[in-house]
Simulated assay, not measured.
Amino acid sequence: MRTFRFAVAAALVATLSACGSAAAGQGDRQVTELRYQGSPGTVILPELAQDLGFLNGVTLKWVGNTISGPQDIQSAATGQTDFGGAFNGAVAKLVAARAPIKAVISYYGEDKETFNGYYVLDGSPIKSARDLIGKKVAVNTLGAHLEAVLKEYLKRQGLTKDEIKQVELVVVPPVNTEQSLRQKQIDVATLGGILRDKAVERGGIHPLFTDYELLGAFNAGTYVLRDDFIAKNPDTTRKFVTGVAKAIEWTKSHPRDEVVARLKSIIAKRGRSEDATAIGYWKSYGVSSTGGVIGAKEFQTWIDWLQREGELRPGQVKAADVYTNAYNPFANGSAK
């Protein structure tokens, strides 16, 4: 069953007025501690921002690890956490389901260093998009980034909607994807980050295409806050967004070795019994805009895709409804 259906999102909306209000600012007091979910073995940008001292008095409280972007923003929408991040298409779907959330800053994307590839075995008969008809393509979750990019690729290569439906999507945990490809349990493996690098090092595979080749450098996901949180905590919101924006630019302006060393030290200090091996393969967060400023196209591309998929009605949600750059100092060039 496709994850992150509107029925689930709509059910969540009913709880929003009761959930999360306790976390919002009371009177003139604004929240200064933000609850969030992390990811094992990695450092998310707000964690880096806090370690660099960029959050200006705002602190973070880790409440556990997320299993996916859609789950992370659902947690934020229902008040279990104060912010969450996900693929922009998933954010647009939740807003379309009337969840009162707003995307405030981009936090990951694709560039020449950081991208997802759709890999096949050397010698595979799959040479083009049309060869994917009737084949199995592994993705980490349905209804998110990897599915959206694949279907955009198939559309651009001339496949009809009925033909695209014949390309079978199979949910495979990322750590098992390479093995599944080599054992021929799937025909195409989606690989990124350390998993891609290690698989390529072992040889015997090559990309059919990559999301960077298809779309160029682009911001793919954003952090969201609830509307009521933003309204009651505007200063905290600004400090959070500004800190994350500065952390993005810090990673771009410092040598990779220095960034990696800093990320490793953060993992060591937080004491979660994690394997920091993946950090050694870090290359970038992939955020193409200065300070993570959000562009309308970064949502419109996926809103258009969701409409083609029948997931959204035409006009159900507009890009301008989904995001704001009002709290990002890089949006008007005032950042220092």
Rank of each mutant, 00 (worst) to 15 (best):
P234E: 11
A247Q: 03
F218Q: 15
G216E: 03
W250A: 05
G216K: 02
L263H: 01
D228C: 05
V224T: 14
G216H: 03
L225T: 14
R238F: 09
F240S: 09
R262H: 09
A220H: 07
K232R: 14
P255V: 10
D257A: 13
S265W: 00
D257E: 14
T251V: 05
G221T: 04
G221W: 06
R238D: 07
I266Y: 02
S265H: 08
Y223L: 15
A268D: 15
I230Q: 02
D228T: 15
V241D: 06
V260M: 07
P234L: 12
A217Y: 10
K264Q: 12
D228M: 08
K239L: 13
D228R: 06
A268L: 10
R262W: 02
A247L: 02
P255E: 06
E249M: 15
L263S: 07
Y223P: 09
T237I: 01
E258G: 13
T242N: 06
F218G: 14
I266C: 07
V260H: 04
F240T: 08
G216A: 04
G221Q: 03
V241F: 02
R238L: 09
I248E: 06
S253C: 11
G221M: 03
D257V: 15
R270N: 05
F218K: 15
V260R: 04
A245N: 08
T242L: 08
R262G: 02
V244Q: 00
L225N: 07
K239P: 09
A245H: 13
D227Y: 06
K269W: 08
D227C: 07
G221V: 05
G221I: 03
K232G: 03
D227R: 11
A231H: 10
I248L: 13
A231W: 04
A220G: 14
T236Y: 12
F229D: 02
K252C: 03
E258M: 07
T222L: 05
T251D: 00
N219V: 07
P234T: 13
K269N: 12
A220Y: 11
D257H: 08
R270I: 04
K264H: 10
T242H: 10
T237L: 03
R238I: 14
L225W: 02
T236R: 03
A245Q: 09
N233D: 07
T236I: 09
R226P: 10
R256M: 09
G221P: 14
A220E: 10
Y223Q: 15
I267F: 12
V244F: 01
G216C: 04
R270A: 01
V259H: 00
N219W: 06
V244Y: 00
E249F: 05
A220T: 14
A220F: 13
I266L: 01
W250T: 04
K269S: 12
K232A: 13
K269I: 12
T251Q: 04
R256D: 03
T251H: 02
T242W: 06
P255I: 07
V260K: 05
I230Y: 05
A217R: 13
H254S: 11
R238K: 14
W250M: 05
V259D: 00
F218Y: 14
V260N: 06
H254I: 07
I267R: 11
V224F: 04
N233E: 00
G271Y: 04
I266P: 01
V260S: 01
I266F: 04
T236S: 10
H254F: 08
F218N: 15
R270T: 08
E249C: 13
